[in-house]
Design a protein around this nucleic acid. Structure first.
Lengths: 139, 139
DNA sequence: TTAAATGCAAAAAATTTGCAGACGT
DNA sequence: ACGTCTGCAAATTTTTTGCATTTAA
């Protein structure tokens, strides 16, 4: 991959989310853009390569405020640590139970949600679906 | 609710899962049976009422080994702490975003999983679905 | 210029571990 | 009787906080 080729510049997007575009935040955005999904500790490892003295506290603080401001989202996975992703249109996730790879997948949950509304008295507003199994490489 | 009326005795079930039926474990099983879903800290609070000197370590150790032995399962919820439930047939969850209530719901995910298989190269083995919204009381 | 962000160190919270005595089977 | 479980204390890991300095806008 050619570094930064085709990669979006997140300066403006960060500002639109009321976040100052610091070098650390731009790097977090770039990491999520490049990797798609990344755990907190993996993100820290990546960041250390660009900022020799970045603090774990900075990672925590940024993950936290970026979630509050809906710039990123946490994906909680069964039997694994959470990963984070840039906020995008609602979608489901595929998680490899062997290597931990995570992929986005767009699925139609209309019927399932309709069934749930019919069967329950909840006012359903959102859904989180994680499908687990073996990815192409691990099968 | 009449105490213990209609509540299953989990002695045998625990043994079938290779777990000694200690009073602490029976109480955990009873709590999950009665509450359906409970967080680790809520479970600890409940247990303190029955065992004045129970240790948090005992809770952690039991939650851990009970999950390993498939007696219970963790349910990871968005924007909330995990809850635990007795292992039962696969099902989805409804989570109230206001009061935190969690309910089981049986939904047909056949079509969704079929769609996922068609669109991806994952060998899908299981699914976790959490639908969030307001429960009857919180609406 | 000014409010906010960073990095560091310390604090707090969450989870795990080791071990002696108690207990289930 | 044996191997496991419990409770306690200590250790470890994870996450948060306070503060002086730096920085984005």
């Amino acid at each position: 991959m050619v570094y930064n080729y085709g990669m979006k510049n997140y300066t403006q997007t960060l500002r639109e989310h009321n976040l100052k575009a610091t070098p650390q935040r731009l790097a977090i955005a770039d990491a999520l853009d490049a990797k798609g999904h990344i755990s907190l500790e993996d993100l820290y490892m990546l960041m250390l390569k660009k900022f020799d003295s970045i603090s774990l506290a900075t990672i925590y603080k940024n993950i936290h405020i970026m979630m509050e401001n809906c710039f990123i989202q946490e994906v909680k996975l069964p039997h694994a640590k959470s990963v984070y992703e840039l906020t995008k249109a609602s979608h489901a996730h595929l998680a490899c139970s062997k290597c931990g790879a995570v992929e986005d997948i767009s699925l139609d949950l209309e019927n399932v949600v309709a069934e749930a509304r019919a069967k329950s008295s909840f006012a359903i507003e959102s859904s989180e679906l994680v499908l687990s199994g073996l990815c192409k490489n691990c099968r």
